[in-house]
Design a protein around this nucleic acid. Structure first.
Lengths: 341, 341
DNA sequence: CTGAAAGCGCTAACAA
DNA sequence: TTGTTAGCGCTTTCAG
């Protein structure tokens, strides 16, 4: 049984291709009797429409692209889940692209999205990205773009983010309340919106308490071993930090490893809070106090926003900005053990 | 500057569309001078070819599908990375689909792949899947399929797997060596190849030691809370297990939580080994002994196999079977603390 | 080396 | 309510 096309299906029914096409779409122009017959024959003859022919003709691909730095971070796994859950209800397909946190890669991927391959793009930008030319260009070609989580500020592109500043502040105040005198902030890159905002919240909390935040924000942009070495150096330095705010979950793991290796105890010697969705936070040694982002919900919200724009291209959503709050979940790594909001 | 097509690009150069098409493909039929001109103009006028027109004509989509049960398990995140790394070198795009471990979903997704949307499919089957009709049908329509990790045995479909039986055996023997008298195996579903094979290895290890493996393989197919409750019940029962082999990482976490909640100590009261790629294994409380699968490499190998078949459809790869070994990494949850192979 | 023509499979106008 | 026609944008003969 070889694959047949709509014309052959039509012929086998003594109908025209356009009638069949409309019938399959349940068009009001077609009689019920015909629809029945067409559906039955399509089923029986195992007809599968060619999506690319349809895309070419309709200039709609029924596909979106998701561009993210990586997929290993639990946040992005959860976000993909959220995105998929919406895409599925819309009958859309999801292409995944990884920038590996490189601007050059990201740019090429976005460039490719201009081809018409996708109807919209969800993007969490790389740590190296400082300009949104590429995204704006996409939009100028009528392909809607939505930022999720990692965005570029002061830019009229719709975005779904979390309350990074507040959470940076809350996390830091939590450490201060737990007795930290010299907390530091572990950042990935100062150009990365989420790090910058979280760091600002951190700095503000220090200032409120009369601590000068200068030199307390540390960029951890090396590979895993380099970061661990850097943290060890920090822990062995004369002015040793007694608290850490990790801007992404990986950095928290590295603090755990570094402390273990040089025999420093969490939370007695140092305390730590991490921005993280890691599932194992409660069973780490010690359990990890986290600022947990609503990753699934953010993915869902971003996808919803994107589809709103795909379905109604005339809407100007460029200033749309959805902020979903993260939650501080206090566990043992910061010395506490209760849940507040 | 509106989007132009190949004909317009050609016209602006005083050439025909076909010449331009060939030039862009660096065809030997075209003079170097012309190629130069075409490339320059394409760049200058910002020409982007329409991939769907090309797909329609060439009957090649330059896209593959990856179907997996979920993306939250770290294994799949790593596998996606491996798959992407190959797809990128081939200039291929990657569509991600999640079956949420439901056969019905999986079937619909596979069904959709028959449309020509993709040139090949990588699939890790759902826990409910017991027949590969849907996959065989795909292949009968000349769309290559490769199983990765979760497969169906005794089926001539190329596959990339790990040494599940051996590892189930090794893990169990490790527990027995560490003094366990009553180990149990936590399975997801007996129909799932990986669970079945790991369980067989487990049972064999028990038999070798003269322990009857009956009723020691426990299906944990409920939701998170149900599984935790089940494990607690087990831990409070008269014939309490003193060792656990967790067939997937999630189950190990649930053992940790259950033990914590009823005050049972790992590794003193019970020992545990888990099939897992979780990054936090070394910093869990206690650190988790794992059988770690080469997830990235498996993704890569599966993609390579798939592309081999896409590029040479006449090859019969149906009996191809790549087995990449997993590694037992001994940590504290099983009482040990050294690395063997 | 270049171009003209045909058509991949579908759908949107427009006619009937 | 159904059918005819004309493409969507590209690539592939095949002819020049």
């Amino acid at each position: 049984m070889k694959k047949l096309n709509i014309r052959e299906l039509a012929k086998s029914l003594g109908l025209s291709a356009s009638t069949v096409s409309k019938a399959l779409k349940d068009s009001y122009e077609i009689s019920n009797a015909t629809k029945q017959k067409v559906l039955e024959a399509a089923e029986r003859l195992d007809y599968t429409p060619n999506p690319y022919a349809s895309s070419l003709r309709k200039k709609r691909s029924k596909t979106i692209a998701v561009i993210m730095p990586e997929v290993a971070d639990n946040f992005f796994s959860l976000a993909i889940n959220g995105i998929q859950s919406i895409a599925k209800t819309k009958g859309y397909h999801v292409l995944i692209y990884l920038s590996h946190d490189k601007f050059e890669h990201e740019k090429m991927i976005v460039e490719d999205c201009r081809s018409g391959r996708v109807d919209g793009v969800l993007i969490s930008i790389s740590g190296e990205t400082t300009s949104a030319e590429h995204c704006l260009k996409l939009r100028s070609e009528k392909i809607p773009v939505v930022f999720f989580d990692r965005e570029l500020e002061n830019l009229d592109i719709p975005k779904v983010i979390t309350n990074d500043y507040d959470c940076g502040n809350t996390a830091t105040r939590h450490l201060l309340e737990r007795g930290c005198k010299n907390p530091v902030f572990l950042s990935l890159s100062s150009s990365l919106s989420i790090c910058a905002k979280r760091a600002k919240g951190f700095a503000a909390a220090l200032c409120e308490t009369g601590i000068n935040p200068e030199r307390k924000i540390i960029a951890c942009d090396g590979n895993e071993d380099a970061v661990i070495a850097e943290i060890k150096k920090l822990l062995l330095s004369s002015h040793r930090p007694d608290g850490f705010v990790a801007s992404v979950e990986r950095l928290a793991f590295q603090v755990y490893i570094a402390s273990e290796e040089i025999g420093i105890k969490i939370p007695d010697d140092i305390k730590i809070v991490a921005f993280s969705t890691v599932e194992t936070a409660p069973i780490l040694n010690p359990s990890l106090t986290t600022i947990t982002q609503p990753a699934f919900q953010m993915g869902r919200a971003a996808a919803e926003l994107l589809f709103r724009n795909i379905e109604k291209p005339y809407l100007d959503l460029s200033r749309e900005r959805i902020e979903l709050p993260s939650k501080l979940i206090i566990r043992n790594s910061s010395g506490g053990n209760r849940v507040i909001n």
